[in-house]
Amino acid sequence: MSATEPGEYLPTRSSSGRDIILPAVVLGGGLIAWEAVVRIGAIPAYVLPAPSLIAQTLVKDRDILFPSLVVTLTITFQALFWATLCAIALALAIAQSKWLERALMPFAIVLQVTPIIAIAPLLLVYLAPQEAVLVCAFLVAFFPILSNTSLGLASVDHALLDLFDLYRASPWQRLAYLRAPAALPQFFTGLRIGGGLALIGAIVAELAAGAAGQGAGLAFRITEAGYRLDIPRMFAALALISLTGVLIYAALALLSHLCLRRWHESARERGE
C-alpha cells in the first residue's frame, strides 16, 4: 500500500481460487459419498438413484427435459423482466408522492404475504395455464424488487439532497444524478432476490397448473416422473432446476458486481 500513490488503482488479490476450490471439493466429496452409499448398500434406483445414474438420465432424457427447461427459463425471465419494469416504475412513482405510497403499499404487501401456492389455483380459473404461471412468477418477483428499490430511492444522504436544493436541481436531475445511482445497490439486492423467486413462482405455479404437452415446464416433468415412479428422472429435473437457480443468481450477482464495483462497499473486499 505504502509504495503506491493515492488515487492509483491497486491490483486486487485474486480470491477466486479459494472461493471456487473449497466448495467444489465439498460438492465432489458429497457426490462420491452418495455414490458409495448407494453402491455399497445396493439401494435400488427407485428409492435413491446414484449421482452417476442421474447424470445418465439427464443425457438419456434430454429430449424431454431440455425443452421443458427452455419453457421454465422463458417464463422465469419473462416474469423477471416484467416484474423489474413494473417495480421500477412503481418505485419511482412512490418516490415522487407520499400519497401514492400510502395508497398502494398495503396492496403490494397483501400480495407479498399471501402464499403464491394459494393464489395459483385461483389464477388458473381465470387465465390459461401458461398465463397463470407467468403471473404467479411475476407476483413473487415483483415485491422484493419494489421494496428494495423504494428503500434505495428514499435513503439518499440528506446533505446531498441539500446540495441539489442549493443548485436548484429539477426533479428530473435529482432522479437521474442522485436518487437513481444511490438506489442502485438496493435495486440489485431486490433483483437478486426477485430472480430466485421468479423461478420458484414459475415452478410452484406449474405444479398447481399441471400443464402437459408442448408447454410443459420442469415442474410438470417432476410430477409426471413421480406418477411413473421414474425417480432418476425426478432427480434429473430437480438438478436442472437447482442449476438454473444458481445460474440466475450468479448472473445477477455478476451484473450487480460489474455495476457497483467501482464505488460500493458491498462489491469490494475489505482493505482494498
Partner: peptide
C-alpha cells in the same frame, strides 16, 4: 451565487 461547504464532504460516492 452561493457556495456551500457542509460538515461532511458530501461527495457523490459513484
Amino acid at each position: 451565487g452561493v457556495g456551500f461547504v457542509f460538515q461532511e464532504p458530501t461527495l457523490l460516492p459513484w
